[in-house]
């Protein structure tokens, strides 16, 4: 807008809203079907979830007979030790998965950015965890981790490194880290692809110029490559964070949130509350809280994208 100058720009800004809408009527018509679908499949469920969050839904009653409890569900959630346990698990899960997936993906992207024999094959292999079904992956890892006859346990015992198979997913202390490893294994290829795409945009002449100026490999990375990847990194991290906040398949299939809630994260807990225990009201209140968190993350995501666009436009 700042580049629009003079009388024409002033006239545009002063134009009344109906006029503006009329001017863009074709644009509105194009997006109308999408908006209608969004209202039905997104806006209404959000409204209904917020409404439900103020009701108690005991298992002996139909949903239509729900009992109004005001903020009772929110109070119950915030005073429940399970909430804090699940929230702590969710934060550990999200932060660890996001950070390690990103770093690992970035490292792989840097390694694969160089020319070497077999690069294509290696790239294809590394993408496999991301393209296979999360459900299949969860079952495979469940067997790999199995506390009695898992592959890892068998190898360790076979090599004489352990007396009995390690307990990965049947212990409250090891279950969450074990699941995070699986999640990282599934997610790092996504970060790798994103960063590989980002690396393509780093101007080769700048890197060469820096080399001519005597910059070593680290200096070239830190002062030339990394600044160019800042935006793609931000978007990748935000997408990973949102995906991890919303994770369900791996913890649900591998442990069902157990043992003793040690691997319950928000989504699995909400699912259990709603579908296993029919506490639709409490589950809705949880969902509203999660929605607020994700909206905040979404805001930063959009801001990051807008920042990219502004920079691109500026360039």
């Amino acid at each position: 807008m700042t580049i629009v100058a003079g009388k024409t720009g002033a006239r545009r800004r002063l134009r009344p809203l109906p006029g503006k809408i009329w001017e863009h009527r074709a644009d509105y018509a194009y997006v109308l079907p999408a908006i209608a679908v969004m209202l039905i499949v997104i806006a209404y469920p959000i409204y209904y979830t917020i409404e439900l969050s103020f009701f108690n839904t005991p298992p002996g009653l139909q949903l239509r007979d729900k009992i109004f409890v005001g903020f009772g569900n929110y109070t119950a959630i915030l005073t429940s030790p399970v909430f804090w346990k699940v929230t702590s698990n969710t934060l550990i899960w999200t932060l660890a998965s996001t950070f390690i997936s990103f770093v690992l993906g970035f490292a792989c992207a840097l390694a694969l950015h160089r020319e070497f024999v077999g690069r294509g094959v290696l790239r294809a292999i590394l993408i496999i965890p991301w393209v296979i079904s999360a459900v299949a992956a969860s079952y495979i890892w469940k067997w790999i981790y199995h506390s009695d006859f898992g592959i890892i346990g068998a190898v360790l015992v076979g090599l004489g490194l352990a007396d009995r198979p390690p307990n990965f997913i049947d212990s409250v202390s090891t279950v969450l880290p074990s699941l995070i490893v699986v999640n990282i294994w599934r997610e790092f290829p996504f970060a790798m692809i994103m960063m590989m795409a980002g690396l393509q945009t780093v101007p080769e002449q700048l890197l060469r110029a820096a080399k001519v100026d005597g910059a070593n490999a680290w200096q070239r990375f830190w002062h030339v490559t990394f600044p160019h990847l800042r935006n793609v990194s931000t978007v990748t991290i935000l997408l990973l964070a949102v995906a991890n906040f919303n994770s369900f398949i791996i913890p649900w299939i591998m442990t069902g949130g157990g043992p003793s809630n040690a691997s319950h994260i928000w989504i699995t807990h909400i699912y259990e509350l709603a579908f296993g225990r029919q506490r639709w009201g409490v589950a809705s209140a949880y969902s509203v809280l999660l929605f607020l968190i994700l909206m905040t993350l979404g805001y930063f995501y959009v801001r990051a994208l807008s920042g990219n666009e502004r920079k691109d436009a500026g360039a």
């Binding site: 298992p59 002996g60 409250v172 157990g258 043992p259 003793s260 809630n261 040690a262 296993g276 225990r277």
Partner: peptide, 24 residues
């Protein structure tokens, strides 16, 4: 009872898990 599925599928297994993991 209408509450039986929750008792049998969630509360009883939770009790076992809480005791067996040392959480309680």
């Amino acid at each position: 009872l209408p509450q039986s599925p929750e008792i049998m599928n969630i509360i009883v297994p939770d009790m076992l898990q809480n005791a067996l993991t040392g959480a309680m």
